[in-house]
Amino acid sequence: MHAPDGFLTAGTAVATGVVSVTGIGVALRRTRDALADRAIPLAGLTGAFVFAGQMFNFPIAAGTTGHLLGGALAAVLLGPWLGALVVSVVVVVQALLFADGGLTALGYNVLNMALVTAFGGWAVFRLARRFLPATRVGISTAAGIAGFASVVLSAMAFSLEWLFGASAPVPFDRVFTAMVGVHGLIGIGEGVITGLVVAAVLASRPDLVTGADGMEVQDSSRASIGRFVVGAAVVTLLVAGGVSQFAGSDPDGLETVAQEQGFATQAQDHALGSSLFADYATAGVADERVSLALAGFTGVAVTLAVASGVALAGRRRFS
């Protein structure tokens, strides 16, 4: 996901750069008080934690490994503003000091990997918490769902940027299916790990988890991984299918996000169903219409999720 120089057009790089600089600027303002009295070393240390989390490989299947992106995890642990700021700094440091991602690509890399994951993940986390009990298992499950959604949203944001700023004539729907399909799978790992990490922190220092406000003190029963997976599956189904049903006539922002999340799940089925090279010769009118609809829905989904995240972050005064 660390895109190199010139991967998208110059105009896209500038536009996303403006968005990212603005986002970081607002996050700096929002976290100024918190950072002033306590926490520059604290932010640095948690940044080192996110960085280390991205360096170490977790097993995925049959010995293959993946690593954490950490945007949703940082947002749940530190709150969306500080989380977005810390992950942004990680991405900038990776580009500047470790040559990971292009310098002129920083605009879209920060946007996709820090701002979209932190704020989009935060919106999904708050939404999921509405439907889950305020217990350790419930909050960890919500964090897991947010981790999954943040990766998919990030891939969707990248596809959208490709739509506007493609540096090569590869059609949007092909990039979309490949990106979102692959990241749907990556997101499962991200979700499981995010949920488990949050559960572990909640077990020892629940006061350090910004997203765990109002957690009920639980009996001492340990959350089993089986219960977690079942809970996550049930809630995903609920969010994907159920919520979109009764969000019909007058949906508020969050319910609409759920609707779009439902749509995103369908889009992945499509991604897994068709190959990268399928029917490229028949890119007719119908395909274009599908492509356009897909682009529209993607735009709405990413924008709504990120905007809801920012709005929620503002309303609840998390630093």
Binding site: L45, T46, P59, A62, L77, V192, A199, A200, V201, S204
Partner: peptide
Amino acid sequence: PRWLWQVRPLATASGALFVRSYERGERVH
């Protein structure tokens, strides 16, 4: 660990690592 469902101990260790990093940050500050 070789599979995702064996990841729990690693993730739990990561959670402990977060707590340790945070507390180290407080001490450093």
